[in-house]
């Protein structure tokens, strides 16, 4: 499967990755090659095989409903470039 430049631009936008017009073709070529490589899997016959999300048949680990975490706002906001009053702040986002 080949991706065109418009599709790459759209994916980049959804992922909020800045890609210049000059770079689009290079990305399209690379991503198309990756997809083509993975598409080899289509050759495997999976008739009658249930879709799976993992290889092991483990039960999903669960946690008890107890408060064991939190209470460190300074760590949570520690990496934020900007903050105020215990919040982290970002350029205004209103739709």
């Amino acid at each position: 499967m080949a991706l065109d430049q418009a599709t790459v631009a759209r994916i980049a936008n959804l992922a909020r990755i800045k890609v210049t017009d000059d770079e689009l073709q290079a990305w399209a070529t690379d991503l198309s090659a990756i997809i083509t490589f993975v598409e080899q899997l289509d050759e495997v016959n999976v008739d009658g095989v249930e879709p799976m999300t993992g290889v092991g048949d483990f039960p999903l680990p669960l946690r008890v409903d107890a408060v064991t975490d939190g209470g460190y706002a300074e760590i949570v906001t520690g990496n934020a470039p900007e903050g105020a009053l215990g919040f982290y702040t970002v350029p205004k986002v209103v739709e």
Partner: peptide, 20 residues
Amino acid sequence: NAKLFSGAPIAFGAEPNTQV
């Protein structure tokens, strides 16, 4: 008492980012 995937509490009206 706690969140869906973590042990942080869920209380309405707490100080910002303290229940995280």
